[in-house]
Design a binder for these strands. Structure first.
Lengths: 163, 163
DNA sequence: GTCTATATTCTGATAGAC
DNA sequence: GTCTATCAGAATATAGAC
């Protein structure tokens, strides 16, 4: 709290005019992030065939994570510091986000465009894979963000496509 | 430190007969984990074609993570609490582990059995994907560990295979 | 090798003046 | 709404007795 106060240019006590306590601050940060993600994902993935929507999801997820590295980092690394009730709240939002991907996979299977045995588990697997980008990608390296999106989409497409 | 002391049944001060300080304890935990991983991986992936070695790596990685959930959790979540020199040390070990997978991918491409544009980046991507298992898999659920290994291998095989 | 006791620093949060 | 001052507790680590 003292570090936050220093960074925003006030004394530590002044922070409590804005937040009731530290736990609520953490919850607010994580909830704002999840709600923004949930607000943005529908329009990114609502049009086209299941395969087109899947590609849109892959590119959206990578781009969103790249644009919000701190929020994404906190959303994963600070989960263990949420009180049980707050943890449940965030997990509910995360689950709602994952359902967008799961629905795409289910549609793809139904239309015969994808081969996915377990849509729920494949959803977890793909999101874990896409989240990996933030741990190593840095702008100015050998690959551009667009190339990383291309590479991930190439792998996802093949991993769930009909053979 | 007090919690650790309580769990092992001594007073907090007695811990310092075994470790010089908390940072060293964390480093030792992470280094022991990485060195065990490095000791076990070669014999798991040294035999067969690149595709067979890749399958062996996928199954080995998932099984190892499942058998050492606490060590794996610490190895990722506590990286930020390592002092710079210790962080470098652990990252060097992690990189050495990743080279085993990267070498398999390179061999597969050379022999025409795999289509992988960027072996280094695909290595990061696949390990992130496999690491995801520990965040959601619990024994006694709908899927067995073997089924989770099968599902991951099915996705990895298709993601890097020739089309 | 473990204990008790404690030094020192840090932490989240509050009280009251302005 | 921010400040100064401070409370109460927790943290890592050390000292010295046994």
């Amino acid at each position: 709290m003292r570090q936050i106060a220093k960074d925003v240019g006030v004394q530590a006590g002044a922070l409590y005019n804005y937040i009731p306590d530290k736990q609520t601050l953490l919850l607010d940060l994580m909830r704002d992030h999840m709600e923004q993600l949930l607000a943005d994902v529908p329009k990114a993935v609502e049009q086209g065939t299941p395969m087109e929507r899947l590609e849109a999801f892959v590119r959206f997820h990578i781009a969103y994570n790249y644009d919000h590295p701190d929020a994404v980092f906190i959303a994963y690394m600070e989960l263990r510091n949420l009180e049980p009730a707050n943890f449940e709240l965030i997990e509910t939002l995360r689950s709602r986000y994952e359902r967008h991907l799961e629905a795409i996979l289910q549609d793809g299977v139904r239309e015969g465009a994808m081969t996915v045995g377990e849509p729920r588990v494949v959803t977890f697997t793909l999101i874990a894979m896409l989240n990996g980008v933030n741990t190593w990608f840095r702008e100015g390296g050998r690959l551009s963000l667009a190339e990383v999106q291309d590479l991930n989409w190439s792998m996802v497409r093949r991993a769930v496509g009909v053979e």
